[in-house]
């Protein structure tokens, strides 16, 4: 067994374990953290495939941003586990059927018939100055530019839609316009008046 293979099995074992714990952990925060571990380990596996851009982006986007928001929500929710587990046995047959179907579908495609070593040769190791990032960027903006731009537009529409659905202006919020705050002049807030001194100088307390 080579060093790389050993690392692969090490990462794969962690990934499978973390993936299992995501669905078996009782505490939803633990489950979310195991999902983080799963993402991170998957990034390690991609790194072994010399897909360093995808690996780092996986960590940057999913671990660094998406899962943080996930955790954020999971921690804020008051999740009652017993309520969630209600009706577990009622749903089990349907869920079992769906998962068996999923496994069958995956085994049809992912078996050695399509992904075996004789079909998919080991990729050639690249020279040290090969930049995976540059190569991906070139492909995305030349050969696949329409698909890429379409995906970007769809995502943009999704963002706009999500904001439009949740945007509401509360009437009771004490919203302050920062521009107004910046524009405030002294005379709006402060009035200096002249008045006669009522005490002889030198008799009162000294300056503050």
């Amino acid at each position: 067994m080579t060093y790389t293979t050993a690392i692969f099995y090490f990462f794969a074992a962690i990934l499978v374990f973390a993936g299992l714990r995501v669905i078996t952990a009782r505490n939803p925060v633990h489950a979310a953290l195991f999902l983080v571990l799963a993402f991170f380990t998957a990034a390690g596996l991609w790194m072994l495939l010399e897909a360093e851009f995808l690996a780092i982006t996986l960590v940057l986007v999913y671990v660094g941003a998406v899962m943080v928001l996930f955790l954020f929500v999971v921690m804020m929710l008051d999740i009652n586990l017993d309520k969630l587990r209600e009706g577990f046995w009622d749903y089990l047959p349907l869920a079992g059927f769906v998962s068996v179907l999923l496994v069958i579908e995956m085994s049809l495609i992912l078996g050695s018939r399509h992904f075996g070593l004789d079909v998919m040769a080991t990729p050639e190791p690249h020279p040290a100055d090969y930049s995976n990032t540059k190569e991906l960027g070139r492909l995305l903006y030349t050969d696949y530019v329409y698909a890429f731009e379409l995906a970007a537009v769809i995502l943009l529409v999704a963002i706009v839609a999500a904001i439009a659905l949740t945007l509401r202006r509360r009437k009771d919020s004490k919203y302050i316009d920062p521009a107004e705050q910046v524009k405030v002049k002294r005379n709006d807030r402060l009035r200096i008046i002249k008045m006669k001194a009522t005490q002889k100088p030198g008799t009162g307390e000294g300056g503050a």
Binding site: F53, I56, V59, G64
Partner: peptide, 9 residues
Amino acid sequence: NAGLLYVLA
């Protein structure tokens, strides 16, 4: 090669 990305990630 992807040093800056690594730091960000």
